[in-house]
Amino acid sequence: MSDNRIEGYARGLFEIARAEGTLDVVENELYRFARSFEGSDALRSALTDEQIPPAKRQAIVEDLLGGKASATTTQLIAMVVGSGRGRDLPAIIDNLVARASSVKHQEVAEVRTAIALTDDQQARLGAALVKATGKQVNLKVVVDPSVLGGIVATVGDTVIDGSVRTRIDQLKSRL
């Protein structure tokens, strides 16, 4: 899909979420879904298979997110998948998140951890990143078991890697 089309979809989803007054919630849910979409081959195949009718793909989304995400989030994802743009879903959502952050004069800070962070930890981590980068950050926490332990934080082009995975890789490299 062209950048214009991705941007168009992102703008549309952004305006809908903002109109609904659930931008922050929808943004976070979409972001987590995008990361799950990227990390799951089965989910990606199911939502991008052209042989599966659009209605059935949308039904899969609703079954998957029903009760776990807001109705707006579920409907927005179902709309994108139903229109046959499931393959571009991560790019559309990333564009939406970047747009939302820009509106709030923030920069997206993607944080990957092996386990979920508490609200207190997220708050303190956000403050620490603000202090470290000098930017207001829009914290997006992704639970990624491949990290093994610790945290990997990416703010723009800056990557702060405190993961066990990276330390093990460095150790293996030295070995």
Binding site: T113, I115, L117, Q121, R124, L125, A127, A128, L129, K131, A132, G149, G150, I151, A153, I160, G162, V164
Partner: peptide, 11 residues
């Protein structure tokens, strides 16, 4: 402990 250490170090 790893998470707390990371937050402390970044801060």
């Amino acid at each position: 402990e790893l998470i707390e250490n990371f937050i402390t170090r970044v801060g």
